[in-house]
Design a protein around this nucleic acid. Structure first.
Length: 569
RNA sequence: UGGGAUGUCGUCUAAUGGUAGGACAGCAGACUCUGGAUCUGUAUGUGGGGGUUCGACUCCUCCCAUCCCAACCA
């Protein structure tokens, strides 16, 4: 009865209001059952996990309904956009596992068509050239409580408008001298309908159309036409465009062209991070993080470098759902999905982050034994490996306490624990630095009868520790990451206060002098492991043949950490 | 304030007039050579007031709270 369970589960996670709309459209035959979506990024920044929600929705819905999804770059503002972003965005979408096949489009491909439509609007008396400057336009627009006033240029003749528009296009005017505006209603209660701008003059080089154009279409005019030209059926966007929808509809209706339906859903937010492109750009530009792929960032490139898998992000998005309620998703949910994914796929390995030297006094000086270790207890097919054991070892510093509280199970003077896949050891003696009092090394004795990790007499230990052999281990650098911000919603700041004040000064901790078991000699950036008891780690591109570098993707669920916290309280 | 939208466990999300359900987080326990994983159990919610109805998260009404719109950004 497994399959039935699966269907039930899928149903749980995937019913939402947009599907209800599509189902209804299909029922009434609105688009002959056709479903065609698009993901329309502006190439002015890197994609983040908020975009992943939109991508997952746009591509996922098309797939589910046997339709298509276009990738379309909304490149109507050459001042902010760049080809670098186009390539990064394509890479991220592919990494997430989506395919636009041969449908890669650019809004700039439609500039001629858009201009023709604009001429049509002017001919029909539905648009005019306005010569107010930006300050005047703002004043004439009124406010949310007061109606605007008509522009003095609103009643220019069709002939004059046609001529001026042509001259705007030909580059006869400087930036800002004129605009083309829709003639709607300056007293409209919806501000977006108060004679919105259609074209503005910008003598700017465009990375795709070069200097062919010096007028560029505004979002509201361009976007609906892009959708219409591509015969998109369902045009999904975020909630803040709700007020733009009447305008979207107005242009398409007045032009009498194919009319897609705009549907708005709530943007994705997550606790302790930010999604604002502007703010992300600031963190990158001003050096608060190291580039767009800094593992602390919620960018897809950052998450990838951190060790997140596309599968985990997609499962996460399924669970997050789609609705119109604005929300902030707990980052712990994302962590749940990456743990779930990595738990079943990553090999286990032993690595000591903060080494404490252990000398096994009764172990032969020159002996090395190979211990058999399981690669993944969740997946027997991943097999076993052998790990060298010798007289001098490193264990995790936090696995030893000289004077432990009663609920500390690990090593302490007189206490016996198991070294994973090796022997039981008992701590006999602690060596300290006479000046600082810091513990330098501990001396233990091992029980030869417990080889492999089990006692023939059946006695139990309360803890199993990971370890590496001092002479065989390889040094490494390990980078630990924590929340980028200290506040659950970093956007929530007092008047005049900067979101930067909410940055977590300890969001990254770089550990040098860590040791890995020797099997990690030949690895590549991007390889992921579970360091037993410590978490999931991903090999960073900064690695060199001499010094592998790892990023901690996420810790294991840590019951001991919670107990410690309670102890403190 | 004019217009547009949204309010369901701590968080996210189902239930469209008929038992308020799931996931994460939490708590308790079982098991364990990872204080991991797994398994079991468990507490917590319909923004508020009226109304319609045998019955309301759902319909009506008033109120409250939050978000969006006054870029030649998208």
């Amino acid at each position: 009865m497994e399959p039935e369970k699966n269907t039930e589960r899928k149903k749980e996670t995937s019913s939402h209001f947009i599907k209800a709309i599509i189902d209804e459209d299909n029922r009434t035959g609105k688009h002959d059952g056709r479903v065609h979506t698009r993901f329309p990024p502006e190439p002015n920044g890197y994609l983040h996990i908020g975009h992943a929600k939109a991508i997952h929705l746009d591509f996922g819905l098309a797939e589910e309904y046997g339709g298509k999804c276009n990738l379309r770059f909304d490149d109507t503002n050459p001042e902010k956009e760049d080809m670098e972003y186009v390539e990064a965005i394509k890479k991220d979408i592919q990494w997430l596992g989506y395919d636009w096949e041969d449908r890669l489009y650019f809004a700039s491909d439609y500039f001629d068509q858009m201009y023709e439509y604009a001429v049509q609007l002017v001919r029909e008396g539905k648009a005019y050239v306005c010569s107010l400057n930006d300050e005047e336009i703002r004043q004439y627009r009124g406010t949310v409580t007061e109606p605007g006033r008509n522009s003095p240029y609103r009643e220019r003749s069709v002939e004059e408008n046609l001529q001026l528009l042509e001259r705007m296009k030909n580059g006869e005017f400087p930036d800002g001298a004129h605009t083309l505006r829709a003639k709607i209603d300056m007293a409209h209660p919806n501000m977006k309908m108060r004679d919105p701008l259609i074209y503005r003059i910008r003598h700017t080089y465009h990375y795709r159309t070069a200097n062919n154009w010096c007028i560029y279409p505004m979002y509201d005019y361009a976007h609906c036409l892009e959708d219409s030209i591509e015969r998109i059926t369902h045009s999904l966007c975020s909630l803040e465009f709700e007020v733009n929808r009447p305008l979207y509809d107005w242009f398409l209706d007045e032009l009498r062209v194919f009319h897609p339906q705009q549907i708005e859903f709530a943007r994705f937010n997550m606790s302790y991070t930010i999604m604002s492109k502007r703010k992300l750009l600031r963190l990158v530009r001003e050096g608060y993080v190291n580039g767009w792929d800094d593992p602390r960032l919620p960018t897809l490139s950052g998450l990838r470098r951190r060790g997140y898998t596309p599968e985990s992000i997609r499962s996460f998005m399924d669970r997050v759902g789609v609705a119109k309620t604005e929300s902030i998703v707990d980052y712990a949910l994302l962590e749940f999905f990456i743990r779930e994914d990595l738990n079943r796929r990553t090999p286990r390995v032993m690595a000591v982050l903060n080494p404490l030297k252990v000398v096994i006094d009764n172990y032969p000086e020159d002996l090395t034994e190979e211990m058999e270790a399981v690669n993944n207890p969740e997946d027997a097919a991943m097999g076993c490996r052998s790990v060298p054991f010798s007289k001098v070892l490193y264990i995790e510093r936090e696995d030893f306490m000289e004077d432990p509280p009663r609920n500390f199970f690990r090593l302490a003077p007189g206490r016996e624990v198991r070294l994973r896949y090796a022997y039981f050891i008992r701590c006999d003696r602690v060596v300290k630095d006479p000046d600082s009092g810091e513990i330098i090394e501990i001396h233990c004795t091992y029980d030869p009868e417990t080889k492999g990790g089990n006692a023939p007499d059946g006695r139990k230990v309360k803890a199993t520790l990971h370890w590496v052999s001092a002479t065989h281990s390889i040094p490494a650098e390990i980078r630990l990451y924590d929340k980028l911000f200290l506040q659950e919603n970093p956007e929530d700041v007092a008047e005049g206060e900067d979101f930067l004040t909410k940055l977590n000064p300890e969001s990254r901790k770089i550990l040098k002098g860590c040791f890995l078991e020797p099997g990690l000699q030949d690895i590549n950036p991007g390889d992921t492991f579970q360091f037993e008891r410590m978490g999931y780690f991903c090999c960073d591109p900064d690695s060199t043949p001499d010094l592998p570098v790892f990023n901690r993707t996420v810790t294991l669920r840590d019951t001991w950490a919670r107990i410690q916290q309670k102890n403190q309280e």
